[in-house]
Amino acid sequence: MTTIDHVTLEVADPAAAAGFYASLGLEERVRVRSGAPATGFSGFTLSLVASQPSTVDALVAAAVEAGATVLKPASKSLWGYGGVVTAPDGTIVTFASSSKKDTGPATRQVDDVVLQLGVDDVAASRQFYADHGFTVAKSFGRKYVEFDTGAVTLTLNRRKSLAKVAGVDPDGSDAHGVVIGGADGAFTDPDGFRWES
């Protein structure tokens, strides 16, 4: 099984970005380094999954306190409860819970970190990753694929659909501003997402 240990975001101000992700308890899974951030939609989102709505609210509040801007306020939907922010470095961060009801007191506990890649052809990208040793956990044809990747879950989504869920225009540069760590060797996928060991 190929795993993802962490993601590295390339940002204009690494110190500020490091502080933001530390405020959410993500130091181990989200790293930062100096680089040119993407312009427009960078083609990916980070999704932080929590157990219940009040925890989502607490995480969104912590993100806003640390400098994030709300794109979509947290609310109920067909699939659960969630909201979307833009981090100070420009990364789109979604917060989600499959539960619509609280079962205990609110915490700021992130249960899962999901790297959602927006790709042009989900089926072709799925095959590319399968050829690189990734194990498919869930697949919904040409719409969505989830891989079993350890500390950070990887999903493939249609780029326009991912942008729509995030509430942003799908246009953007090819410079994604993210490097994915943990692969067996360095490579670049068909949509320009870079991997490193």
Rank of each mutant, 00 (worst) to 15 (best):
V7A: 03
K101A: 14
G182H: 00
R108D: 05
V122W: 07
L78G: 15
K101L: 13
G82P: 08
Y21A: 05
D102S: 06
R33G: 07
G19E: 11
R31I: 01
G172L: 03
A186R: 14
L59I: 12
V179H: 05
I180A: 04
A124M: 02
S23F: 04
S23E: 09
D89E: 08
T86C: 02
Q52K: 08
T91C: 10
G104C: 06
A68L: 10
A12L: 15
L115D: 03
S42N: 12
V49C: 02
V122S: 09
E196N: 12
G167R: 14
G82F: 06
D5H: 12
A163M: 10
D169P: 13
A66Y: 07
F20C: 03
G167L: 04
G40M: 08
G185D: 05
T69W: 01
K164Q: 15
Y129D: 05
D112P: 01
V119C: 05
F134E: 04
G90F: 00
F187T: 10
S98P: 09
G150T: 13
L26H: 01
V70M: 10
G80M: 10
T107I: 02
D189I: 14
D13T: 14
E28H: 11
L156Y: 09
A124W: 01
R108E: 08
V11F: 08
Q109M: 07
L26V: 05
R31V: 04
V119W: 02
A15E: 13
D89Y: 06
T45F: 01
V165A: 14
I92T: 15
G104Y: 11
L71A: 03
D112A: 06
S173Q: 13
P88G: 04
V110K: 01
Y21E: 00
A163Y: 11
E146V: 04
S23G: 13
A63G: 11
V7R: 06
A68R: 09
L154E: 07
T69E: 11
T149F: 03
T3D: 04
D174C: 06
G133F: 01
S197W: 00
R194S: 07
S99P: 05
T149M: 02
R29T: 14
Q52D: 10
T8A: 06
A63S: 13
L24S: 07
A18Y: 09
S98F: 12
L9H: 03
D89Q: 11
A123W: 04
T45K: 07
T155H: 07
A12W: 10
R31H: 13
A183W: 00
A87V: 12
T45R: 09
D169N: 15
S161K: 11
G104H: 10
A137M: 12
D13W: 10
A123Y: 02
P37R: 13
D189A: 06
L48F: 01
F187R: 06
L156C: 10
F134V: 00
L9W: 00
L48W: 00
A74N: 10
S42E: 09
T188Q: 01
W79P: 04
A66I: 13
D120T: 15
Y129G: 10
P14M: 07
L78Y: 12
A15K: 15
I4W: 05
G83K: 12
A175K: 14
L26D: 00
K76M: 08
D5F: 00
Q116V: 11
A74R: 13
G104V: 00
R33T: 02
A175W: 02
S197A: 14
